[in-house]
Computed example of a mutant assay.
Amino acid sequence: MIDLSDLVDAALLGGREVMRVYAGGFETRRKADDTPVTEADHASERVVVAALARIAPGVPVVAEEAASEGRVPDHAERFILLDPLDGTREFCQRSGEFTVNIGLVENGVPVAGVILAPALGLLYAGRLGKGAFRAAVDADGVAGAPEPIATRRAPSALVVAASRSHGVEAASAFAARLPVERFVQRGSSLKYGLVAEGAADLYPRFGRTMEWDTAAGEAILVAAGGGVLRLDGSPLGYGKRGRADAIDFANPDFLAYGDPALVARLFEAG
């Protein structure tokens, strides 16, 4: 078994590289899909992939920057999804709301995950059946004591997590039929952390995401008591390749939630 603590250590290595670049000057380039990329993306990916090779020899790693260049390893029941810098836009804007995401997938299901927000000094992690936690991370990239987290029972008025830059109007329209107290906007995969720790109740996501964006967050959220479903109520699923209607590893719209009873009522109501 791959230890969650080893995945945490790998993410911390990536976070140190990200912050090294963040502290200095950097150039932003555009990839073929017109998304931004910086040296921080590549530096983080290099050190995390090397760490994962030591931690889990023989387990394929599907990493965002390698995949964008067409380098995708063969994989089957067990593989790792890596986003070395989720929220590159936020990184370039220096908002601090960017993360390193590592998710372990088995039989199409994320079973362990780590989300590290190095500029915020915050880490989330979890393993299916073992629970989830958050921890503070100091300026040297060292994680403190873990604090267990769990989702909450949905209150009468909901807190909805939303992206700062993607699908905001569609998420607002979806939430318009719900009793909403307020929206909380966060960049990158930090929305999963909000729901997992009970600071938000729903995260509806519209528009394309990739599996390396979501695997770590889904693993943590499920470990904390919540879940992720497509808008038709089916699982999101991982390792999606060879489809006629979507590029490899792309996700459909989905709903991340904290209280299973709430989402059951939503799907029953249509």
Rank of each mutant, 00 (worst) to 15 (best):
161 A>M: 13
38 T>S: 08
270 G>V: 09
248 D>L: 03
57 P>R: 05
54 R>A: 12
250 A>F: 04
138 D>Y: 14
42 H>W: 15
244 A>I: 12
161 A>V: 10
219 A>S: 15
27 E>C: 14
223 A>L: 02
188 S>P: 04
41 D>L: 02
159 V>R: 07
44 S>R: 14
197 E>Y: 03
185 Q>S: 08
195 V>S: 00
130 K>Q: 14
192 Y>P: 01
264 A>C: 15
123 L>C: 03
81 L>T: 01
202 L>E: 02
243 R>T: 09
129 G>N: 10
156 S>P: 05
243 R>N: 06
72 V>Y: 12
211 E>G: 03
114 V>H: 08
209 T>H: 12
60 P>V: 09
37 V>P: 00
154 A>T: 13
246 A>V: 08
81 L>F: 04
122 L>T: 11
20 R>I: 04
111 V>M: 14
146 P>G: 11
124 Y>Q: 13
225 G>H: 01
259 D>Q: 11
185 Q>H: 09
260 P>S: 11
218 E>G: 03
215 A>Y: 07
184 V>E: 10
151 T>M: 03
53 A>W: 08
51 A>W: 01
128 L>G: 01
89 R>E: 12
95 S>G: 10
1 M>D: 14
74 D>W: 07
267 F>G: 05
126 G>P: 09
121 G>W: 15
220 I>W: 03
240 K>F: 14
52 L>R: 04
199 A>I: 04
195 V>I: 04
109 V>F: 05
239 G>Y: 06
147 E>Y: 12
250 A>D: 07
9 D>M: 11
67 A>I: 00
24 G>N: 10
184 V>R: 06
20 R>M: 05
261 A>R: 11
190 L>C: 07
27 E>I: 15
58 G>W: 10
83 D>N: 15
150 A>K: 15
51 A>Q: 00
6 D>N: 11
112 A>I: 03
62 V>G: 03
259 D>L: 12
104 L>H: 03
129 G>A: 02
166 H>F: 07
14 G>S: 02
242 G>M: 13
231 L>K: 01
9 D>P: 03
176 A>D: 11
243 R>H: 15
82 L>I: 09
250 A>V: 11
186 R>F: 11
266 L>P: 02
248 D>W: 04
57 P>G: 04
158 L>C: 11
81 L>Y: 01
248 D>A: 10
140 D>N: 14
258 G>W: 14
212 W>M: 10
112 A>G: 13
86 D>E: 12
169 E>L: 09
254 F>C: 06
60 P>S: 12
177 R>C: 10
167 G>H: 13
133 F>I: 15
94 R>A: 12
241 R>G: 08
107 N>M: 09
100 V>Q: 07
52 L>S: 03
16 R>H: 07
96 G>R: 06
194 L>C: 00
